[in-house]
Design a binder for these strands. Structure first.
Length: 658
DNA sequence: ATAGGCTCTGTTTTT
DNA sequence: CAGAGCCTAT
């Protein structure tokens, strides 16, 4: 049952793992065994220090990271770590708030609004205030500014003024929208993603007994990806650990890539100031990449004058240098990559699952997707579409949502708008006439609803209602069984609706099937819904489709590739305006973050790295536009790269129909 | 007045 | 590929 820590770890890792109580900051450069260190720390605390897993809190950036670490820790300890809290900040906050929301004036069964819900609600607020105007900022834009303010713990007015800079905006009107939005969320008994963090922190700050309870319970707080914490998360962690001071933070300031979401590199840079007795341990021995790749990585990041200077030290033998290819255009780039992928596969140099193509923005992968399809190469897109935010998933979840939270007007309207002759206006009128509260357990209320519906919808809904609320064979209330609830809605109504509404109804109904399988694990509708809302697209795919297909190459944004590694990495569109992104460069300070993003891309590679630079791109009007090479390429000494000539326009595919 | 169908446009990164 | 905006049918 014991575990030989000294044998599994290098000297620096071992110091981190066996550090005594108190604050510890681990600066873990890319590929230096950060996950290994964290999981061994958990195991060490459990085995050598006798800390029960349930007294540890492990905060991670993604659910995937949490799951991975818990699994590994479990293997090391040789027993279940079920009691260990592990997950994202949003998850941890939600877990606390589910228990104590009433202290903050929320109902215990509050809904969680995803981004789509938030935007809709904001739109409604803008309309209601009569501000819908070409010149008034769009709901999406306001949403992101409000969110930024929340995550920075900053003043909304200042953030808005800051964000819009010189552009003339009606600050007073924007603040009115914000106030109304906050009121509406309250009326809905709902929290958006930011509210989870805001209220999670507020709970601890304003309710000493609650804070004491969790401080007592969480004897050790461990935080992953610390460089990407924002003000709220940082305060949350500091507060939780303030009693015993047992806080272990792991991060790499070079990989801070979420400032646009309110992440504050200063949190990691000022850690020592805030925790003067903290031990600081640097991990610099890289086990992932070849020296050639590390040379490039070190070179790239040298352009950023951050505080914790560190050099990635190679532990692997030298092999080939990273490749730099100039290409004619996006099509050429796509054909080149497909060719190289085929070479890698044919030569046995890499398995499909060991290959990734990275890019700055989702749409950069369009041409490559076409080309891969033509070449009949399967690929797995780490997509930008969030599973839960797809229309059909939200449609079927609107019923359980309303079941849990009778004040959730968004869910109610969504449900009603699927009925014939019911659009936004009618749905709103219904909501008003029903007293802005629809408790599905109340049969009289449901009857009243049916009566208020337009004639075309009445018989349909009456039947749906009857089928959904028919006394079931199963035990307990249907409303408490999310899978059954969704199943009944689908059978009574949604299957037909989907077939009439969507071109790809079959596909969507398959998604719904998978959703039901997932839902079946829950006998608590509220728990199911918050889990759904907090799942990212990646997590959803892991959970619902039993992981990505093992034998396909991957396409991913650099952001989503954080924390992962592949044998062969291609980086697309190394062109100024795309990587770095034009919009990021509008503010000078963002260049450094784009550079860190490039650093993240480079350090994903274990053996092979290709940097691709097309010379031109298509414009909207069908013309072409010359692209200057990415400024980051110029920062790399030419000697560190091997330049490859990609012949002509690339081979024209044999089976091309054009 | 409102629902629903049609066309056009324009895309950073995500818990 | 979805969302805004316009048009038409009720």
């Amino acid at each position: 049952m014991s575990c030989d820590f000294a044998q599994h770890l290098n000297e620096a890792q071992l110091r981190a793992v066996t550090a005594p109580d108190g604050a510890v900051l681990v600066i873990a450069a890319a590929g230096t065994g950060k996950t290994r260190t964290l999981t061994h720390r958990v195991a060490w605390l459990a085995l050598e220090r006798g800390v029960e897993p349930r007294r540890m809190l492990l905060l991670t950036f993604t659910n995937r990271a949490a799951r991975e670490m818990l699994e590994r820790a479990m293997q090391l300890i040789g027993q279940d770590v079920g009691g260990l809290w592990g997950g994202t900040f949003h998850h941890a906050a939600n877990r606390m708030l589910r228990r104590h929301a009433t202290l903050l004036g929320y109902g215990a069964d509050y809904s969680i609004l995803d981004e789509d819900d938030s935007t809709r609600l904001l739109k409604a607020c803008i309309n209601e205030l009569g501000l819908r105007d070409k010149k008034f900022p769009k709901a999406e834009v306001l949403g992101s500014v409000f969110s930024l303010a929340a995550n920075r713990g900053a003043d909304v007015a200042e953030t808005v003024a800051d964000r819009f800079g010189a552009h003339p905006v009606d600050l007073t009107a924007i603040l009115k929208v914000h106030t109304l939005y906050e009121q509406r969320k309250r009326a809905l008994n709902a929290m958006d993603f930011d509210d989870l963090l805001v209220n999670g922190l507020k709970l601890l700050q304003e309710h000493e007994s609650v804070a004491a309870r969790y401080q007592e319970r969480m004897q050790h707080v461990l935080v992953d990806e610390y460089q990407d914490t924002n003000k709220l998360q940082n305060d949350f962690v500091d507060l939780l650990a303030s009693g015993h001071g047992n806080l272990l933070a792991v991060g790499d300031d070079f990989q801070s890539i979420y400032s646009w979401r309110g992440a504050e590199v200063q949190n990691i840079l000022s850690f020592e100031r805030r925790h003067p007795e903290a031990q600081v341990i640097k991990l610099e021995d890289n086990y992932r990449s070849t020296p050639g790749i590390l040379d490039v990585a070190n070179r790239v990041i040298a352009g950023n004058p951050e505080q914790y200077q560190k050099v990635l030290r190679a532990t692997r033998p030298a092999e080939v240098k990273p490749v730099y290819v100039k290409l004619v255009d996006g099509g050429h780039q796509a054909r080149y990559i497909v060719g190289k992928v085929q070479q890698l596969l044919d030569s046995g140099a890499a398995q499909p699952s060991e290959i990734v193509v990275l890019y700055r923005s989702h749409y950069h992968s369009m041409e490559l997707q076409l080309e891969l399809t033509r070449a009949r190469l399967d690929y797995y897109l780490m997509s930008g579409v969030r599973f839960f935010e797809q229309a059909h998933i939200k449609d079927v979840c609107s019923l359980p949502r309303l079941a849990v939270n009778p004040a959730d007007s968004l869910a109610f309207m969504r449900l009603m708008e699927m009925l014939p002759k019911v659009g936004p206006k009618k749905a709103q009128a219904l909501w008003r006439d029903l007293g802005q509260h629809v408790n599905l357990r109340d049969a009289a209320k449901r009857a009243q609803l049916t009566k208020l519906l337009p004639k075309d919808a009445q018989p349909l809904w009456a039947e749906v209602d009857a089928k959904i609320f028919a006394p079931g064979e199963g035990e307990g209330d249907v409303l408490d069984r999310p899978a059954e609830l969704i199943f009944r809605l689908v059978e009574a109504f949604y299957r037909d609706y989907a077939e009439e509404t969507f071109e790809n109804a079959e596909q969507r109904l398959e998604d719904v099937e998978e959703l039901m399988t997932f839902a079946a694990k829950y006998d608590d509708t509220a728990a199911f819904l918050s889990e759904m809302a907090l799942l990212t697209n990646l997590d959803a795919e892991q959970n619902l489709h039993a992981g990505p297909p093992a034998q396909t190459i991957r396409l991913s944004t650099v952001h989503q590739a954080k924390g992962l590694e592949w044998k062969a990495v291609f980086v697309l569109w190394m062109v100024d305006g795309m990587f770095p992104a034009a919009r990021s460069l509008e503010e000078a300070a963002n260049e450094a973050e784009e550079r860190r993003l490039f650093y993240v891309a480079v350090t994903r590679a274990k053996d092979y790295l290709w940097l691709c630079q097309p010379r031109m791109r298509k414009t909207r009007e069908g013309g072409v536009m010359l692209c200057p090479p990415s400024r980051f390429l110029a920062e790399i000494d030419p000697g560190l790269l091997q330049e490859e000539k990609a012949g002509g326009m690339g081979a024209v595919p044999r089976w091309s129909r054009w």
